[in-house]
Simulated scan of single mutants.
Amino acid sequence: MKKIRLILVALFIVLGIELSTNNIQAHASSSTTTPKSLRGTWYKYTGSGKFSTIKITKHSLTYNGTVYSPSKSGSHKLKVSKWGSWYSFNKGSSTSNLGQFKTEKRLIKGSYKKSLVRYGNIGTYYVFTHHKYHHDYSFKVLD
């Protein structure tokens, strides 16, 4: 019984040393470079033949004509952060928080196509596509 207890104590000491020497990586990172998977021009049908547009380049984001980039100042200065599979633009800024984005395959016109999903209010997801489809593919998960 003493040998088992001694082995367990030694094991806990080794695990403690191992955990204390490992670098712990943060779950969120921040930069001014947008991920390649989100880049491009994205459209969402808003009705009456009109579209909401998001254009994402390496160092800028244009949302309905408003440009956000690292070279701008104030609320138009671009900041990109990641949490899990979601990317946030200007997170923490109450005046220019652009929301959370990720890409995923969505069923559009009978086949799965790459789309940009923007998380909106509680349970609302806005779906943007690379092509102008005259249909809004946005959805809600909570009603």
Rank of each mutant, 00 (worst) to 15 (best):
I24K: 14
K82F: 01
Q100I: 00
W86H: 04
Y126I: 05
T124M: 11
S31H: 01
V67K: 15
L61S: 11
E104L: 11
N97Y: 13
L8S: 12
K91M: 03
H76E: 12
S60P: 13
Y133W: 02
K55V: 14
Y137D: 01
T66V: 15
W83Y: 09
L107R: 12
S96C: 09
G92D: 04
T53Q: 12
T32E: 11
N22A: 09
G40L: 05
S85M: 05
A10T: 11
W83A: 05
L98M: 13
K50I: 00
S93M: 04
K2E: 03
Y63L: 15
T62K: 15
F51R: 01
S88C: 05
T62Q: 15
W83E: 04
H130W: 00
K3S: 13
Y133F: 04
Y68K: 06
K79T: 12
Y137N: 00
K58I: 06
L116M: 11
T57H: 08
G74I: 06
L61C: 14
Y133H: 09
I17G: 15
L19W: 13
K132I: 00
I24P: 06
S20E: 08
L107T: 10
S75A: 11
I24T: 13
K55A: 14
K58M: 06
S75V: 08
S94Y: 07
L107C: 07
W86S: 08
H131A: 06
W86A: 06
P35F: 01
V80A: 03
S37K: 13
L38M: 13
S96I: 05
G65F: 12
V14S: 13
I122V: 05
S52W: 04
V67L: 15
L8H: 05
S115D: 01
S88T: 01
K140R: 14
I24G: 06
H131P: 00
Y137L: 02
Q100T: 03
L15C: 15
S94T: 10
L142S: 09
G65D: 12
A10K: 04
S60Y: 12
H27Y: 11
T53W: 02
Y45P: 04
S93C: 02
T32D: 12
H135R: 03
Y126Q: 13
Y112M: 08
I17K: 03
K102P: 05
K140H: 14
Y63H: 15
G16E: 08
F89V: 08
R106E: 09
L142P: 01
Y112A: 10
W42R: 04
L107S: 14
S115G: 14
V14N: 05
T66F: 11
S71C: 02
H27A: 11
K79W: 02
S31M: 01
